[in-house]
Amino acid sequence: MAAKIDETDRRILRALRRDARLSNSKLAEEVNLSASPCWNRVRALEQKGVIEGYSALLSQKALGLPDTVIIEVTLERHDDETVERFGQALAALPEVVEAYLLTGEYDYLIKVAVAGTEGYEEFLRRKLYTIPGLRHSRSTFVLRCLKRMASVEP
């Protein structure tokens, strides 16, 4: 069930979404609250699970992984053990930025960060293709990211 949030909570969430490093006093000023009620609202949003955490967005390019590849994966079997084991193995790979279990033609959609075609081949041969249960994969190199958000707009 979705948590009940009012317009003040939404203003807080939008401000934190733009800049999660805002001090409580700056946040309170931005959303027209005093510091204590603002702090209480942020803590309540965290406790309700509306705010799941805070993180830094890192530059793939600056870290030497400028290329993003989207991979669609089909598994050999769809029993619980194969699906679970494959998902856990994906989650352990540092190149995997996102991984989704899907309905439809493919079983998983994976977003990976690599350094060019050489880095991608290395990822495929030494990591992805060594995970038991993989039957087929199809890959697409991303030309340009048009939108990247860490969360939805509240």
Score class of each variant (00 low, 15 high):
E95R: 07
F86W: 02
I71E: 10
R126E: 14
A20I: 10
L22S: 10
A44P: 00
E84L: 07
R43F: 05
S151I: 02
E76H: 12
G104Q: 06
A56N: 10
E122T: 14
N40P: 01
R85T: 09
E46S: 03
A28L: 07
L57G: 03
N32M: 03
T8S: 13
A2R: 13
A91M: 06
A56H: 13
W39V: 12
S23H: 08
L27Q: 01
K61Y: 08
E72R: 13
V73F: 03
D79R: 10
R148I: 08
F141W: 12
L65Y: 14
N40M: 14
A115Q: 12
D19G: 10
G64K: 08
I70P: 02
R21G: 15
S23F: 07
L93V: 11
I71S: 02
T140I: 01
L63W: 11
E98N: 14
L134N: 08
Q47M: 11
V50I: 11
L65D: 02
L45Y: 05
E46D: 05
V31I: 07
L146G: 14
S25M: 13
R148S: 15
T82Y: 06
K61Q: 13
D80Y: 08
Y106N: 10
S139V: 07
L27Y: 06
R148N: 12
N32H: 09
R10V: 07
L124Y: 05
D80S: 11
K48P: 00
A56D: 12
L58P: 01
A113D: 08
N40D: 11
A3W: 08
Y120V: 07
A3H: 06
S25L: 13
S34C: 02
L13R: 08
A35R: 15
P66L: 04
N40A: 14
K127F: 05
R43N: 08
Y54E: 03
E46I: 13
N40R: 15
E72K: 09
E98D: 15
Q88I: 05
Y129H: 14
E81P: 00
L109F: 09
A28M: 06
F123I: 06
I110G: 03
E118D: 11
I51H: 10
E153S: 12
L57V: 11
E29A: 15
A56P: 00
L102M: 09
A28F: 06
I71Y: 02
Q88F: 10
W39G: 09
Y106L: 01
Y120S: 04
L146P: 00
S36F: 04
P132W: 06
E121M: 11
T68W: 04
T68C: 04
M1L: 13
H78P: 00
Y108W: 12
L58V: 09
V142Q: 09
I70D: 02
L101C: 09
E153R: 10
Y108E: 00
T82I: 05
V96S: 05
K61R: 15
R148L: 12
I70S: 06
T130G: 01
S25R: 15
A44H: 01
K61S: 12
I131E: 07
A150Y: 08
R135E: 13
S55Q: 05
